[in-house]
Design a protein around this nucleic acid. Structure first.
Lengths: 213, 213
DNA sequence: CCAGAATACATAGCAGTGCTATACCTCGGT
DNA sequence: ACCGAGGTATAGCACTGCTATGTATTCTGG
């Protein structure tokens, strides 16, 4: 039979509902499968194909949603008069987001290639670049320091530690203890004064991580 | 029917054959499925269950094989009279291995928890620790520098850049250009003299990466 | 040297997966 | 009021990992 009597609210709402449900199931560590995703929404399996072209398309949308949430979280970090502190604060917000939604974080970086909307991912990164550029403008970093390259170094080291912790290779304590040391080394290498740098880093670290059950 | 006429060579050889075939199919980017793996070996699907207890067990064995190959590759890096150079050489060998077997590398770090034989993974890491310790003993690093912690910082930053490149987020050039800068920053932060450090890093970088098709 | 036990094997079939073909309903424009 | 376009539901496809069952092979003890 056909249950067309259901009041159709808005057609594009199905898209968001499916993505949201998939992300929620991912967070609950439930298996995210075609039939299980559509089961809660009342929609049929075909909805995934009309809206996303298949399961890979749905995963792509979920990854984009994850990057959008990350970018929103990073955008909520308020700039202060200490731009070096702000860089570390962005790093802390980054790890907080990763540990708040670990499976979503892993899915995000499973395969970024072929992402339709890369602006969300770039948005988060550009916040880091902007903070580094402010530090350079404030005289904390050397004038010839490329903010974008420094941001890559900061991001890659934090991402590496985060993934190693999330996959169970390293305990969380290692991330908490080692990332500030990497950050100080990177900042001092581009001209920041060691003591002042350490104070700035300590002002925004450690992040508030959820206690693992 | 049962083809028992086939000359059975050695029973445990089946294990290695299945792992090797799975790794080879992974490298060829073919879908590694239960039936496709056993197809080439002439064995039946049950072999996977008697030897590995299922597909997850096979994947676990493949990951261990990957870590063993990595450890062997790192062990082949000859120590020189410049221990700082050796640390970078280990990093170069690490990235060379990752880019030579990208899918195996990704599978290795998909889920390290529950790895039966962690000695292989630790073996590669201890080589890095040993080189850092030699640098400390040679006076390049400060006496209070913990080689293990420094090794974690070096490894995590390299791992982060490597995974970001392998997943398509960053181009290879970023890895080649930024990792030595991270390494110099980390080494100088623990006491190495900047100019000498730069020379040591340049002596072992960049790695020889296979040209991507 | 040979019984008995333990192990590995091949086959068939199970539930579940992503996906597609087809018929159906709903809706917007002339 | 019609009719074409597009989203939807259903059924079925090939495939996945896995298990039950019966059989062959290998190891062990006397």
């Amino acid at each position: 039979m056909y249950s067309g009597q259901v009041p159709k609210t808005a057609p594009p709402q199905v898209r968001a509902a499916l993505v949201e449900r998939a992300a929620a199931m991912l967070a609950r560590r439930e298996p995210v499968t075609l039939r299980s995703v559509v089961a809660g929404t009342g929609a049929s399996t075909m909805a995934v194909y009309t809206h996303f072209g298949g399961m890979p398309g749905l995963w792509r949308a979920v990854r984009e949603e994850g990057f959008a949430r990350l970018a929103a979280r990073l955008a909520a970090v308020p700039p202060t008069d200490d731009p070096v502190r702000d860089v570390v604060a962005l790093g802390a917000a980054y790890t907080e987001n990763a540990f708040a939604h670990p499976d979503l974080y892993r899915a995000m970086f499973d395969e970024v290639a072929g992402l339709a909307d890369r602006s969300a991912a770039d948005g988060g990164f550009s916040a880091l670049v902007a903070a580094a550029d402010r530090a350079r403008a404030a005289g904390r970093f050397a004038p010839d320091c490329d903010p974008e390259q420094l941001a890559v170094r900061v991001w890659a080291s934090g991402h590496g530690l985060t993934t190693l912790v999330l996959t169970g290779v390293l305990p969380v304590e290692v991330l908490l203890a080692q990332w500030p040391r990497i950050a100080v080394a990177l900042f001092v290498a581009v001209g920041d004064e060691p003591d002042r740098c350490a104070r700035s880093v300590d002002a925004a670290w450690p992040p508030r991580l959820p206690t693992p059950p």
